[in-house]
Amino acid sequence: MSTSRELRAALAAGLAENGGLSDPVWIKAAEAVPREVFAGSYFLPVEGSHPTAYRAVRPTDPGWLEGVYGDRTLVTQLDGRTGADDVGAGPVIGAPSSSSTLPSLVLGMWQRLGTDSGHRVLEIGTGTGYSTALGAHRLGDANVTSVEYDPRVAERAAAALRTAGYAPRLVVGDGLRGDPDGGAYDRLIATCSVRHLPLPWLHQVKPGGRVLVTVSGWSYASGLAELTVTGPGEATGRFLPGYTSFMIARPHDRPPHSALALLPGDERPSLIDPAVLDGWTGGWVAQLAAPSAERMGGGGTQILSDVATGSQARTTPRADGGWTVTQRGPLRLWDRVEEAVGLWRRAGEPHQEGFGITVSAAGQRVWIGEEDGPGWNLPI
């Protein structure tokens, strides 16, 4: 049976070998920080279950430590309250609400952040504390402040950090407000996603400083953005290659609602194949066009339900090979999606590195190509 030290070394070597990790300081951090201290008991999805069920894996279970050092996300909380130690041996169903993100993504983001010795970093979303420990190992405890929304999650992370020998500054509160004491940070890294950039962040990061954050929405399409702060409350940047998703910050998550009732509306042929929304960037473009809508279904049968207005759009396949779209409510959601997909296609259907983002007093805008290109305003 391999030891924790051996498994850490193997994880770091694997990440370096596949090109995901190249900076020696972050390779050393991966070798040094014991992920098992932060993951503790965790949930794994039950293969083939629908809706997804989870089984708890505990330190006494065979393969627990090897599972900790797999390059995968470990769910540590369901429904904002249930940990893996709170359930029995059988499978449970719930919505993941906290996790230890796969190490390649966490380390890759820290590496991408471009920190130097002496930089002060504000982390939004302490989670298990593993990412926080990596930052503290690289920069020193005094240069890392981490904010966690959930008090129970924060308490466990604080204990794990102490056990691992790290003592960064920890804050319990709404991370979308940044550091409650303010600050002049060189970098900000978010381990949750947001519907728009919280302006306090852009007042607490120095001009010229860097922000790394995942922009998401109520259809749960995501894009990782790297922005440079250009002035107080202002920033610009681009989205990055790859496929990054994080749980949405709880204050930005969609409000609770009753079960969806499909109602009659106006019908017409769809101008696009609805299955385009199943692609990573196609779904992203649709979300930009209808930012307060939740997306369900797939393939030729897509459903958009606007949380703010109750507007609906749904597509159904036709016998002749086309699709019918039914729309109702004040927003013609599918009209907006078709227009957005058309703009994206005329731009050559770029992946997200072809998109940029600008935050200013005028609002927050995601655009294709160049800053004056076609784009969409984020919901504020």
Rank of each mutant, 00 (worst) to 15 (best):
S4A: 15
E31N: 09
P34R: 13
S41Q: 09
Y42Q: 03
F43P: 00
T52E: 13
D61S: 13
P62D: 15
G67Q: 08
G70H: 09
T73K: 11
V75A: 12
A84N: 07
G88W: 12
V92N: 03
T101H: 08
T101V: 13
L102P: 00
G108H: 06
D116N: 15
H119L: 02
H119M: 10
T128N: 04
Y130L: 09
G135C: 06
L139H: 05
A160G: 10
L161W: 04
A164D: 03
V171N: 05
D174I: 07
G182L: 10
D186R: 06
D186S: 13
S193W: 05
V194Y: 01
R195M: 07
H196T: 15
L199I: 14
P200Y: 05
L202R: 04
K206G: 00
P207H: 08
R210W: 02
G231K: 12
A235W: 05
T244W: 14
A249W: 00
L262F: 13
L263E: 15
D266G: 02
R268W: 07
D278Q: 11
W280M: 03
G282T: 09
G283T: 09
W284A: 00
L288Q: 07
S292Y: 12
G298I: 11
G300Q: 09
A308D: 14
A313M: 08
W323Q: 00
V325W: 02
R336W: 01
E338D: 11
E339H: 15
G354H: 07
G356K: 02
